[in-house]
Amino acid sequence: MKLDKKDQQLLNALQDNARTSVSELAQSVSLSDTPCLRRIKKLESANVISGYHAAINPKAVDLNVSVYAFVRLNQNSVAAAEQFEQQVEKLEHVLECSVISGSYDYLLKIIAADLESYESFVKHKLGSIDCIANIESTVVLKQAFTKRHLPLA
């Protein structure tokens, strides 16, 4: 989908505050309510807008440790990749799963209450997935910043 300037302005406004009313959005991009709502629905239908959510502070809900885990599968096959991805998607502490290049196959972003919880997660959940050959973890000492606002032209 080709985005025009109004679409980009709408997306930027929604990234700043997804709870902004249609009237406020329309006013901010110099449209009336109906055409603005039509554009939003079109962006949703085209999956440019994939959803709306609340950003929750992990520490406020006792999730104090972030870990990046590099995972190597025991075989480089479609079946092993599909099995791994299906099983990892079910693990609620895994926030992101990315296929990567290099000596590892996947990079996982995992959140836990503390290091003991993470160790238990690796031993009892992640480590129990049969197709994993190796897991290497890197603990985040401090999150300097997180950007959620995509740079739209």
Rank of each mutant, 00 (worst) to 15 (best):
Q83Y: 07
E89I: 12
L14K: 02
V22A: 14
R38N: 12
V122S: 05
D4V: 07
S50H: 10
L95D: 06
M1N: 08
V78Q: 09
Q83V: 10
R39E: 04
V94C: 03
E92S: 12
S120H: 11
L126I: 04
L108R: 00
T20A: 13
D4H: 06
Q83G: 01
A113D: 12
I49V: 13
I135P: 02
S77L: 11
N57K: 09
P35C: 07
A133D: 14
C36A: 12
A153T: 13
E119D: 13
T34K: 10
Q83C: 07
Y68N: 07
N12G: 05
Q15T: 08
V71T: 01
Q8E: 11
L141N: 11
L11D: 06
K42P: 09
A18P: 09
S23W: 12
I49W: 03
N64T: 12
L107Q: 08
K142N: 15
V99K: 08
A26L: 05
E136W: 11
I135T: 13
K59H: 13
L107T: 01
H93R: 10
L95H: 04
L150W: 05
Q143S: 13
S28M: 03
E119W: 04
S101C: 15
V94H: 02
L14D: 02
K59Q: 12
A26Y: 01
A54M: 09
N47L: 09
D130W: 11
L3G: 02
N12F: 05
Q9H: 07
L14Y: 03
T20K: 09
N134W: 07
K123G: 03
S137P: 02
C97Q: 10
N17C: 03
H149M: 08
T146M: 10
Q75N: 10
A79C: 06
F121T: 00
T20P: 02
R39Y: 02
Q75G: 14
V99I: 12
L43D: 04
T146I: 15
S128R: 15
A112R: 01
S50D: 13
P35L: 07
A113F: 11
N47M: 14
V61M: 10
R148M: 11
R38F: 10
T138N: 13
V22C: 12
L10T: 00
L73M: 09
H124E: 15
V122Y: 05
A113C: 10
C131Q: 04
V94F: 01
L115R: 08
L115Q: 13
I110W: 00
T138F: 14
L14I: 06
A80S: 09
N134G: 06
K90M: 14
V99H: 10
A18I: 15
D62N: 15
D62W: 12
E96D: 08
N64H: 14
I49T: 03
A153P: 13
I129K: 03
A81R: 04
I132H: 01
N57S: 11
V61K: 07
A79E: 08
D16P: 04
L43F: 13
R19P: 03
A113L: 15
D16R: 10
Y68I: 13
Y52N: 03
L115A: 08
E96A: 08
F145H: 09
F70T: 01
L115V: 15
S66Q: 09
V65N: 02
F84V: 00
H53V: 15
I110S: 01
D62R: 14
S32C: 04
S101T: 15
I100S: 02
D62T: 11
Y118Q: 00
